[in-house]
Design a protein around this nucleic acid. Structure first.
Lengths: 195, 195, 195, 195
DNA sequence: GATGAATGAGCTTTCATTCAT
DNA sequence: AATGAATGAAAGCTCATTCAT
């Protein structure tokens, strides 16, 4: 049997090309033409599948958020102890971020653009949801007497702020170091909010 | 003495208009034409004083950084104890940020754009300098046994990360609350790095 | 007997959707995509039945012209007296036009586009034929001494011009008023050309 | 003394080129690129002076309306008798139209496009104003017992409708014939509304 | 210092149409 | 008869920047 030429799956090609461009040049500096030539799809095809540059970014971010969330899975497991959940949340973010530094930059760029450009409202919504550890979950921990009773916006900043901050400036880091750093930040996060 | 009509100080007018636009619409969405009509200066005038849009942003950021640094003055006073210095650094950032939330957004946007666009290299340099408490100062505290011996990039993230993170999402906050929040984050920062 | 689901008659659906779009937005502003989504037919179907946007308009105009002609039937009846024929021609136009003001607008648009766009030549031909009362018929009336001996282009303008002109600016008008107005213009038309 | 090269007056060049294109191909079929190459101005220049294609058409129509109004001057002279005024109004339209048949086509196209496209609202307003003989003036004639007491929209259609209708189909006509035809329509107009 | 006309590359997006299935 | 992915030319328009005055 002859291996049939797989269907090109244009949608996928376009997404891949767009991601490569966004990571390389940033969202603003990427033109549709860049994506067109990199994906070898036609302009029309791109618009056939996506409403515009913003929709492309949205689709990609959705995927990125999923990839990241996978690493933080333990944070959402209801069986986890508060400490485990919080440490998983921080570690997940940091390890994902240190492994994908260009994704971090891309997400940062989208976050700040989205706060100005109404066309990117869906992106804003998406990124706001990306807070792995939810407010409800934290409230549960407060009720259990495990953590300090703080407004979630503050608790969130205390727990994840250092990681976000570090990632924003960090370059590529060897995998073994990443684990140690993740551990360090996870410990600090737990110390910052424990009861 | 005749009341002389003051010179209009075009440079100032242009900067003010540019800032207003950048804060309102973001850097990317602001065109020179926007600044022109808001400042009531001519295109030529703008280019007479500034090399381009990037240079305008740079000049404004320089001013913003100064305004913010003023609030963190105690952080740099060599007389200050380590705790005072660190608390001042965090408080300065938070109070300035809560009072000027749109400046925060503007700086965030510039930071992420600058990391992609080579034209904005001067901006990147400027924002990287904006780390009030310097590495050298922290090294001194380590030597004095006052704080943990951490790489500065990590210490910096632990101390200021929560504040940056909080500011990014916070809206306008009444001044009296700002003080209490600043205090909370300042305490957390000190706890995170004290020996 | 089982109620058979009627065949959807795609052709009809497409025509209806196209007409609705043309009347609503105008021919130029209507895209095939608009017609596609309104008719719930596929792009391919549309092109299966019609050669293009122009052909769609042509088919619709043909129908419109027929609907209008029905109202002017008496004008073409060889039994009619000259006065009856002319009055019927004017009334038919006016009543049809006042009842279907958006069709009037559509026809006007097509007429002017057709005079510039060679692709729309069939449309031009169609609209030129739409002159209910024909030149030959008018010549017969001249020979019978019933009307003035004028070039038909002039006679036509004298008889139908006021109606066209009125329709172009008129909005929706209640049916009873339409009759009175039609009568007024019919009388004027007859007075303008009677011997 | 050497004849100095006159300033190119880009604005004028652009208008002239645009008019030539609009008359030749119609508004819809004319692209900015067409105007650019015909005027030898840059795209930027065109947009420096005009907000867009619609604004160009508007400017040209304003001029056209003026040119035509000049021919109908006597219609507006308060000294004129009702008959003179009405005849002047009709003659002015017809002679202008027969002399500038392509302008007529252009105006017709703009009128019908404007009724669908909100961007062309200024055009619509402009063309609606172009009714040389105003409603107020007609009301005066009614009061003086010179003409029939008809709603102005109807009187207007009776007086000018035939001319509009004729012009829409007429091609180029020799100047001497134009006068005779104008006279014929002017007489018909007066007969249609005289008391 | 100041003006604003002039530039033209470059952008996103639309759209009628084709065609393999 | 029906589908909808794919095409790519072409459109209108924006904008940072230059430069003669």
């Amino acid at each position: 049997m002859i291996a049939s030429k797989q269907p090109p799956d244009r949608r996928r090609q376009i997404l891949d090309a767009a991601l490569a461009c966004f990571l390389e040049r940033g969202f603003v500096a990427t033109s549709i033409a860049d994506i067109r030539s990199r994906s070898r799809a036609s302009t029309g095809s791109i618009y056939h599948f996506f409403a515009g540059k913003g929709a492309l970014a949205e689709a990609l971010l959705r995927e990125a958020v999923i990839g990241w969330a996978r690493l933080s899975a333990a944070a959402l497991d209801p069986q986890s102890s508060p400490e485990t959940a919080i440490r998983a949340s921080v570690s997940g973010l940091l390890i994902w971020g240190l492994t994908n530094p260009r994704h971090v930059r891309f997400m940062e760029e989208m976050r700040s653009l989205a706060s100005n450009d109404p066309d990117l409202a869906p992106v804003r919504a998406l990124l706001d949801d990306g807070q792995t550890l939810g407010a409800a979950q934290y409230a549960g921990m407060v009720a259990a007497g495990a953590v300090q009773d703080l407004p979630f916006s503050i608790a969130h900043a205390l727990m994840l702020g250092p990681s976000y901050s570090y990632l924003r400036r960090a370059g590529n880091i060897p995998a073994d170091q990443a684990d140690r750093i993740a551990d360090l930040f996870a410990t600090a996060a737990w110390d910052a909010v424990r009861a």
